[in-house]
Amino acid sequence: MDVEAIVDNLPLYLQGTWMTIQLVALSLLVGLGLAVPVAVVAGSRRVWVSALPRAYIYFFRGTPLLVQMFLIYYGLAQFEAVRESFLWPLLKEAYACALLAFVLNTGAYTAEILRGAIAQTPFGEIEAARACGMSRAMIMRRIQLPSAFRRALPAYGNEVIFMLHGSALAGVITIVDLFGAARIVNSRYFVPFESFLTAGAFYLGLTFLIVWGFKLWERRWHAHLRARDATPTVTGR
């Protein structure tokens, strides 16, 4: 075991960790913003309305993230229109391409989770909202979405972990995230075991952190589902 190479490069690992956190947080944030409208439209009963978002979800859930990232990073340069557009300075950067791929990917997975959760709204709730005279948009905003978010929380926790693990692919296209840092250390010192195991340990720590965070979050959002205190309190004495 070559511990020295790892200790000497801890700053690099920490820098990589920061990059990973940044990539994952940004992708999740923008991805969630994309997923909500897509989920609402994909849940429409009219086929011509739901066809496009459903096709988007199907494509991004059915193909490997690596291929999606390559399509954007290597693929887009094939088109002259892209190369001459004002976006090109951005799109030729690995960082923007990885971010775009991650956003589109997590957007599709999250949309599918939300679509399922919206579809599971108890009909009585919607009926009650209608009886109160709410419009369809208002029912979606006030009744369906809030309860769907709550139902989607456990599945979304898995998606966040999936995104953290998927973000390691950024290291493949030259970005110095956690995995990229490990690759650099390995290429400099040829210590594959130590370098990648260290990155693995960092990822494991981040995973545990996310699991723990979601447990807290669920405790808050699912407070109404928790078993009540087992010892009944005697009232009216």
Binding site: L164, H165, G166, S167, A168, L169, V172, P192, Y203, L204
Partner: peptide, 19 residues
């Protein structure tokens, strides 16, 4: 389940060979 698959693959492929 806590470590990305690509990291595991590099551990096994490069590290396993060495081991």
């Amino acid at each position: 389940r806590g470590v990305p698959d690509i990291v595991l693959m590099f551990i096994f492929f490069y590290g396993g060979q060495l081991l």
